[in-house]
């Protein structure tokens, strides 16, 4: 199986879906002539033309709002927000419009829209350009929120998102575009709303997603050298959240650590920990611990930034604490 980068996997997903379905088109800032600020849509403009690869003004509410309208009218738009930090300028359209349109009109309207965006810190971009606010978006019923951690999942989930009849908020990670992984040449989809065991183990369960998967797998490698076998469950989709593999794993290992890049308070870890105690309380031999970002706006300085972000060592330490 070919090993390709996350960037290639996402790019392939978009390309294949655009080839497959005339209704699929992309709009966003610098997606066309520039080729995407993360080079994901490089070559798309020349191949598909300006009708289907549309450069927009810097106007996030219009990018998402027009995507909603076009989706309601029968197209399959992909509205790209250059980074998730800019999604706040489109917040009304994401949470008040896209997420509610189907329910609020009694099922009359559908919003088959994908909002593709990029989150994550670690690139010294300062406080406003480094956030991981995934939990914020996962708060709203009606929206689906996907955040893959491998090229395989990114490609399969993005293709599924484009074919979904619901609005999907698809979060990529700014520092993962060069991550490589095996991706089959034949077509496949990864269903939205299914968590997956990325590494089996018997001693403790790490629940994570996106960039957290990378830290968690590295921590698992280190721990394995000490004879500690952790199971790593990748959520892949934050809403709807599939707790079944998580609960099943905790029932086997009796110990859980949640690893996420976002802030600890009200985060993904808070939700998952609450669900574990609701659904598997009797199986727990230790409190569920969280590894997350320190409660500060991310600073520019490299050392300070890294000390605010979760590290592999933090994951290793947390696992040892629950053992």
């Amino acid at each position: 199986m070919p090993r390709i980068t996350m960037r290639q996997a996402i790019s392939q997903a978009l390309w294949e879906e655009m080839e497959r379905d005339e209704r699929v088109f992309i709009m966003g800032e610098e997606v066309g002539i520039w080729g995407g600020t993360y080079a994901v849509t490089k070559g798309f403009y020349d191949h598909f033309g300006e009708k289907r690869v549309r450069d927009t003004p810097i106007a996030e509410a219009a990018i998402v709002g027009a995507g909603i309208g076009a989706a309601m009218a029968g197209l399959r738009p992909i509205s790209e927000l250059m980074t998730v930090n800019f999604a706040f300028s489109a917040m009304d359209h994401i949470v008040n419009e896209a997420a509610k349109m189907h329910y609020m009109f009694g099922g009359q309207m559908r919003v088959p829209l994908v909002i593709r965006t990029v989150g994550g810190g670690g690139r010294q971009l300062g406080a406003t350009h480094s956030q991981t606010p995934d939990a914020v978006f996962a708060h709203f019923p009606g929206l689906k929120v996907v955040a893959p951690g491998t090229p395989y999942d990114a490609k399969g989930l993005l293709k599924a998102a484009i074919r979904s009849d619901d609005p999907v908020f698809f979060i990529e990670h700014a520092t993962m575009y060069q991550v490589r992984g095996e991706v089959p040449e034949e077509e496949y989809l990864v269903p939205i709303g299914e968590s997956k065991i990325q590494r089996p183990g018997r001693d403790a369960t790490i629940i994570t997603y996106s960039k957290g998967l990378d830290w968690s797998l590295k921590a698992a490698d280190q721990l394995a050298k000490e004879g500690i076998e952790v199971e790593v469950v990748d959520l892949r989709t934050l809403r709807p959240l599939d707790m079944e593999p998580v609960v099943a794993s905790v029932q086997r290992t009796n110990r859980a650590v949640v690893v996420e890049e976002g802030w600890r308070s009200y985060g993904v870890g808070a939700e998952v920990a609450a669900r574990i105690q609701e659904e598997a309380f009797d199986y727990l031999d230790a409190p569920v611990l969280r590894v997350a970002q320190k409660e500060v706006p991310l600073p520019y300085n490299r050392t300070l930034e890294q000390s605010a972000l979760p590290q592999v060592a933090d994951v290793v330490r947390a696992v040892k604490e629950v053992l």
Binding site: A62, G65, A66, I68, G69, A70, M72, H93
Partner: peptide
């Protein structure tokens, strides 16, 4: 909020 949505329908 429905103005950008209307633009999308026209699109």
């Amino acid at each position: 909020a429905h103005l950008p949505i209307a633009a999308g329908m026209a699109l």
